[in-house]
Design a protein around this nucleic acid. Sequence first.
DNA 1: CAGGGCGGTT
DNA 2: AACCGCC
Length: 710
Amino acid sequence: MDIDDEDDDWNIGTDMLVMGSSDTPVSEASSSRVILHFDLDCFYAQVEMIRNPALRNKPLGIQQKYIIVTCNYVARDLGLTKLMSVTDALEKCPQLVLVKGEDLTHYREMSYKVTELLMSYYPLVQRLGFDENFLDVTEMVDTKVKQAPSTDLTFSGHIYNEESLAVYASDYPRLAIGSHIAAELREAIKSNLGLTSCAGVATNKLLAKLVSGTFKPNQQTILLPESTADIMGSLSGLRKVPGIGHRTGERLKALGLITVRDLQCIPPAELAREFGAASAQHLQNLAQGIDNSPITPAGPPQSLSDEDSFKKMSLTTEVLKKIEDLLISLMERMFKDGRQPSTFRLTIRRFLATNRYFSRESRQCPIPNHIGQKITTGSCDALAQLVNIAMKLFHKMIDTNSPFHLTLINVCFSNLQSKSDGRGSITSFFTQRSPKKVLSVSQQQNSTLENLSVKGSSSSLPGDCTAFANDSSGKRDSQSTSSKPSEQKKPPPLRHIGTPLSVKSPVPEWTQVPVNSNEHHRPSPSQDPEFLHLPPDVDPDVFKHLPESIQKELLSGFYAGEHEDRQGTSSQSAAVISFHQKLTDQTEPPLQQSSMPTDSIGSGNGSECVKQTTEQTFFFAHRERLSTCTEQEEGNNRSPDTDYPSNVDPTVFSELPPELQRELLSEWRQQKPVLKIPSKKVGKTASTKDKKVATKAGQANNLLNYFKPD
DNA sequence: CAGGGCGGTT
DNA sequence: AACCGCC
C-alpha cells in the first residue's frame, strides 16, 4: 500500500477552479504555476546539420542500426517519419542522406549545452530525455507581475484554440509573461547554439508538454487553463498522455479504457481495484490535465550507461569482447565526469520469440572502492577488473552451457559519488570552469520583454553563483517553504530573483568536455587484442572460453611488443595521462580477491591467475589512438568528406553562431591528424572562447535586466 | 517494436 | 536489486 500521492489531490483546486468557471470571465488563478516546456526540433538531425551545414537542404535521416530515429524537416516533407525503418525510408525517399547516430556523444554534449543555457537564466530546469526541458518560472513571473501593471500585455506565440477564444493577455498576465520568457529563451538557444525549438506555456508540466507540440517546427504555444479539457480531449488515445506508457496503457485497455474520456469517467473505485487508490487517482488526474509534479532541477546525470544492440550474440567470447568495448567508452566518459561510480549494472536482452515484452534483464553489484577509484584516475586495470565483474554478472543471468541468444548488452555506472577534492564534485558544477558562455541573448535591440513596462536597470551581475553550491554531501539545499498550496518544494535556489544566475559561466562540470576533443565515432577498437588483457583475478570460467590464441596472448602479456608512444608523449591529453607502474610478478602477486565485493561477484577460488602486465598505461591512451581510424561508410551518395569544410556551404556556415563556427572548424581540423590527441587543458585554452566573453558582456541580457529589482 | 539513455519506484 | 516508463 502506498501512502504517497499526497500532493496530487488537494490541489486540484487551483487548476480545476479555473477550468470550472468558464461562464464568467476567467481570471488567472494567482496561485497557479507557470511552466515552460522546450522541445528541440528533430534534435539529432539539427546537431548533424550544424556539424555539416551542407546537409541543411537535403533530406536527412539519423540512423541507428536499421532505424531512422529522426529526420530533418526536408525529409519529413517527403513523407518520412520518426522511427521508420531504413528500408522503408529509402523506398519513400531514395535521395535520403543518412548519418549514423549510434554514438550519442555529440547529441549528449549539445543537449547539456541547452540545459546549461536555460539553467543560466533560471535554475529550475528539468531535463526529459536529450531534447526536452521544463522550466518553472512561477516565481520569476510573480515578482514581475507585482512590479508591473498588467496593462500593455501581449501573448507571445500561438494560443491553443485561439480561434474559439476571446481572451486578452491581461486576463492571463502570468502566462503572458511566461510566453515572453519562452520566446526569449528560444531565441537564446537559437542564437547561442544554433538550434530551433518549440515551447509550450501552461500551468503544469503535463500541459506544457502537450501544448508545446501544437505548432511544430520552431514555434510556441500557450495553453490557457480554460482550454485544458479541450487539449486533453484532443488526444487520440490514452497512450498520448505523458505518464501513461506501454504497460499502463495495456492495463487500462484491459479495463476497457481507450480514450482519455474513458479514463476520466471510470469510477475511481474500479480503477483503484487494478492500480491501487493512489495510482488510480494519479491516472485520473493525468486524464484531466492535472499534474502537480514539481520541476526537479537537473543535476549531473545520475547514471552513465553505454549499450549496443545486435541481431544475435551467442558466444561468450563475443560477449566478453562487447562488454569490454562498451566498458572502454563508458569508463572514459566516467573519467571525464570525474565522479566515482559505486554500482555497476549489466543489462541484457534475450531473443525470445515468445516474449511479448522485449524485457531486459539486469544484474548489478557494488563496485569495490579501489576499483572505483581507478576509474576516476583512468587506471588501466580497472577495465580488466570491471570486465571480470561484468562477466560474473553475465553468468548470473546466462548459463553458458546452454545456447543463448542475446540482442542487446548494456553496461551502466550508477550511484555516482562526488569526490570532495573538487573534480566532479557537485560543488563545482557551477563554479567557473570555462568562461565560455556569454549569454548575449537577444541580438535584437529591443527585447520583447522590455515592452512590459519594466524598469530595466543596471546590469551588475554577481560573480559567484552559489545556486547549487553545497558541500560534498551531494545534496542541494533543501529549501524553503512553498508559498503555493501545492506541496511542491519551492526551491528557487536563487536567493534573489533579481540576481541572475551567473551570466558568467555556470557551466556545469558534467558538461565539460575538451573543446577539441575528437571523438566522433564509436570506440570500436574491436580488432585490437590489447584490450583483452585480463586482470590478476580473472575468472577462469571466462578465460577458458577464450580461443587458445587469445589465452596465449593473455598469458604472455600484451604490452610487451608495444610500439613507441606508449610513454606519455607530449601529444597525450591530460585525460590520457599515462603512468608507468612497474609491476613485476614478484612484487605484485596477482591474487587480490580480498578486495572483491562480498557477494558472489567476488573472485572465487585462488586458482585464477594471469600474469600482470609489467607495465600499465592508462587505457584511454589506447582508446584514443584506435578511435582515430574509424570512419563511417555510408551506402549512399554522400561525399566521403562530409565533415570537411570543402563540402560546406560557406553561406550557411557563415550564418552559424560564431562559437559554433569555431568549434566546427576545430573539429574539422581534428579529423586530419591521425594521432592527434587533444588535451583537456589544451582544448580549453586553445579554444578561442575568451574573445566571446567580451562580446556582449556589457549588455546584459534582457531577461536578466528584466528581473532586476527596482 | 525499433535505438541509446536516462530517472524513478518497488 | 530489478523493473517500469519516458524520450
